[in-house]
Amino acid sequence: MDWITIFSTTIKSAVGVETVLYALAAIGINIHFGYTGLLNFGQAAFMAVAGYGLAVTVTVIGLPFWVGIAVGLVAAAILALLMGIPTLHLRADYLAIVTIAVAEIIRLLFRSVAFKDIFGGSDGQRGFSGGFQALNPFPEGEYGFNLGPIPIFFAHWQLWVMVVGWLLIALCCFIVFLLMKSPWGRVLKAIREDEDAVRSLGKNVFSYKMQSLVLGGVIGCLGGFIYGLAYGSVQPDVFGTETTFYLYTMVILGGAARVLGPVVGSMIFWVLLVLLNGTLSEAVAAGVITFIDTSQAGALRYVFVGLGLILLLVFRPQGIFGDKREIAIDAR
């Protein structure tokens, strides 16, 4: 078994592109679910409209990269308004139903045959990250170091995406930190506890929920940009509902309503997933495990993810950073 490769990919995954993009989207979910108590099951749709907004603006319309980013951001904000206006007056579960439906509608629109000329059908769009890579300050080559015998190297284009991504994460976390320490964040947390009490104290609950939905959606859409720029392409099926559920797993793993919770959650999630995948497929290839084949190994790792989540909820429901007292109150 090639332990060197397994450890190399595992360590790289802790800071890699996937961790970055999921962390950004999870920060958005944390604002919705962790702080405001909004059950947004359509975070993948925010990522999708951002990724496709960028892709279509650049490849189909032929406008520059920055315009594409602007289009993606505006699209995410509009999507939040569209989801929020009919549902935020209602109970929380209505928002959950609407968001999951909207996310599926958007995914199916992007992969539909009718709009193949614009969105590219199930193949998606590619060739729009040139403008971003042109800004890359790192000359071509491999960057990194050897950790003992384990090589940890990233290609220059990967490194550029990661640097931008981690800067965005730092910025978003700082914004969340500032907001949640402020009276604005206090209103959000109070809405999570009891909307009617907040209304009786003279706060416009609808407006705050909408602000939360837009903020979390816009931060989440940054994850969609990172996906598009890192892989140089977008495909509709990347933005399926399971993406949203992974995001929830990360938020709960790290600790909901904690500033760094979703970031750490995303890191742990991907480290475990890559480690399991590497170990299982290596073990199958080396003949240590004989009862499954390599493709089954890929699926089996998600079984372990599910198992891990169950164990987490049983033994540490507050997540890594959570406060046990809060959970105890919830159980009353």
């Binding site: 206090r186 109070a190 506890e193 009490a197 009786s200 809060e326």
Partner: peptide, 8 residues
């Protein structure tokens, strides 16, 4: 039914 905001 008292509405204390429990986790504040």
């Amino acid at each position: 039914l008292t509405k204390a905001l429990s986790r504040l």
